[in-house]
Nucleic acid binder design. Structure first.
Lengths: 136, 136
DNA sequence: CATTCATATGTTTGTCTGTTCATATGATAG
DNA sequence: CTATCATATGAACAGACAAACATATGAATG
């Protein structure tokens, strides 16, 4: 019984009554590679932080220098700089130098479309459920 | 100098030469509320995990029971169940009972559009930079 | 060339979160 | 009503990560 250490919860026996073989074959055929799925999750992870989201929204209005963003969000220049580096490594933002100050800007319109998509989902949730979900 | 403990990096003096007041006013006016920005980040956070991303892709093909997903991803039933709960709390998936087994499905087409948007961005990155960025 | 301003970076710390293990619920069959 | 299958849940542990702090780079100005 403990010979293969397969997770509990579902019958290990291939010939069990509860059979998902058909569906598994179908889904396995259509599922993208692990690498792509990972990259995709990593992309969305960038949008999954409040600070970065704020930065992106700010840059949608105008290019900004680091200390302006820090001022806007009421956060350390260091914190903003770290986040900007992450966004830049992912090619979501670019920067240009002008004397001492460095201006950051959105490098892509994908950012706008991706964020807009999530925005729509949220708004629909808000209107569907009155104000906020699970309330008496 | 240390009277207000304002982060270093940018001049604290409101009348400093490096002036972002104009831009700050503009951006502050257009920036959504903190609550909305948080909710938006929380939404994207859901897509920011490989396991959840795989589950969502699988459910795009067909509704599936928990143990089928666990089998597909080679993971514990418990792990899958925990993630499904998170997705269900966010109304991204729903479930229905059929005897002992419980089938999960996408509750929304938003999931498809959101994921597709990220997908497009990735694909474009892939083709733009040959195969993968930063290589000799 | 020394100083100052704007930004970047390395390190540390505290928090969040995904997985595992053990156990509980809930439904069906005998 | 007991045993078993499918799933859910609670607690604990480990890894990831964002913010803070201190410090380094790099440009401009006198």
């Amino acid at each position: 019984m403990t010979e293969k250490t397969i997770p509990v919860g579902c019958t290990e026996d291939p010939a069990a009554e509860h059979d998902h073989e058909a569906i598994l074959r179908l889904v396995r055929r259509e599922l993208p590679t692990d690498e792509l799925l990972c990259d995709l999750a990593d992309l969305f992870k960038l949008f999954g932080d409040t600070t970065r989201m704020k930065i992106l929204f700010a840059l949608m209005e105008s290019e900004m220098c680091v200390c302006a963003i820090a001022d806007l969000l009421g956060m350390t220049q260091s914190a903003i700089s770290h986040q900007l580096r992450i966004l830049k490594d992912a090619n979501l933002v670019g920067n240009r130098r002008e004397g001492k100050t460095i201006y950051y800007f959105l490098s892509d319109d994908h950012v706008r479309t991706i964020v807009a998509q999530g925005f729509d989902h949220l708004i629909e949730d808000y209107t569907e459920n009155g104000e906020r979900k699970e309330e008496p």
